[in-house]
Simulated assay, not measured.
Amino acid sequence: MPDISVGAQTFDLIFHPTESIVYAGLLTGEVKAFGYDEQGQHDQRFTLKPSKRSCRGLAIDEQGDHIWSVGKGKSLCTIDTRTAQITNTRPAVHDAPINRVRYVSQHLLATGDDDGTVKLWDSRTPAEIRAYNHHFDFISDFLWLSDKRHLVVTSGDGTLSVLDIRSSKTTPLAQSEDQEDELLSAVAIKGGQKVVVGTQMGILSIFNRKSGWGDCVDRVPGHPHSIDTLSALPSSYPSSHSTILTGSSDGLIRVVQLLPTKLLGIVTDHGDYPVERIVIDRAGEGHWVGSVGHEDVLKLTDLKDIFEDEDEDDAEGEVSENADSENERPDVIVPEMVKEEKKKAEGWDTDEPESEGEPKSKKRKKKQTKVPLAKKREKKGKNQIVTDPSFFSGL
């Protein structure tokens, strides 16, 4: 699908849970809606401006009837998607700019700001239900664990916390030790039993819920830059329980299998722009991957182009896993639209990570050394990143 031009830098995007509509939150404070179809055509549905300041986060309810937007203006705004109207604005609900918003369950929202404050809201009442102040740096992401009704919070202060929304206490149920790195994103794998956290230094930290939240049980290196966003694969894919999409500040969206750890391929490339957000349509069960970086476009990539091409190649004959030359590498791990950009991924696990003080908006540096993306390493240590093209053969 051609890139959707949104007219300004995009910070967040969400999909309608049942319809082919995507919403983008922009630097200008606008929220724009676009319709799309299976042929890759798109059209703009509406444009609203809930705030004069930037829109940093969006959330949508289970029916897709309401959107909540937050941002630098510190307000919480409600948009009715059916009428394309702003129906409610709660001004100055935080003392600092709001960085994230998450729809948790019916009528319940969570917001997190740059100072580390988390607030819970009932969409039907004007005041917050509870406020949590145990974090002291920006709230980077929320992860909802519905089986225990726990809200996992990641923060730039280097800790992860777990909130029990059923409790009236304003202290967390659990909080991890300092991980000595900014925690930027989170996603659940293994049926929700493990939580993967992306960090500023490009390491995936894995927490095991059965072992408690005190510290991660494993660390997976490999990304040359920060991991700003994570997404699970749709459950229809056989390896969805252990395979995730990672969005890095080097502009690449990767398919990574965990436990055992393997780099499986590249979904798309945002060039010199860091990837801010990855979302899959149809409430995470569709086949369109939406991604935004610091450019003024929204990319929609079809997962079918990645997974189904492997079946066609398997019918003609399998490519040797021990291929040594560039020509023998299986191109199916890279979509057609990014084949010319494959070499940008060849620095996997070769670059030094970005320093913590470097702004995320800076363009990524050119890599100094290159390692073929699909070439197996001779020695495989613990959590070593290797490529396994056979991952796609059963899909």
Rank of each mutant, 00 (worst) to 15 (best):
K343D: 14
D305T: 15
G286P: 08
G290L: 03
F307Q: 06
V332Y: 14
I280A: 02
E276Y: 09
E316M: 10
N322G: 01
P274S: 09
V332Q: 06
N327M: 07
E318L: 12
K304A: 03
E336L: 06
P274H: 05
E336I: 04
E340R: 02
S325H: 04
E285S: 02
G290A: 01
E328C: 07
I333V: 07
F307N: 03
K299R: 14
E318R: 15
H270Q: 07
V279D: 00
D281H: 12
K299M: 11
D313F: 14
V292W: 00
K299Y: 01
E328W: 05
Y273T: 08
I333H: 08
A283W: 01
E316I: 05
E346L: 02
A345C: 00
V334M: 03
N327K: 10
A315S: 11
S291V: 00
E326I: 12
I333K: 02
S325G: 09
T301Q: 13
V275E: 07
K343Q: 15
E276S: 08
E340A: 13
D305E: 15
G286Q: 03
G317Q: 04
K304Q: 08
E336T: 04
D324T: 14
L300G: 09
I280K: 00
A315K: 08
P335F: 01
D281E: 15
G317Y: 03
D309V: 11
D305N: 15
H287N: 07
L300H: 09
I333T: 08
R329Y: 12
V332I: 06
W288M: 15
E340D: 12
L300F: 11
D296P: 13
G286D: 09
Y273S: 14
E340M: 02
V289K: 02
V338R: 04
R282E: 13
L300M: 04
E318G: 12
P330Q: 03
I278G: 06
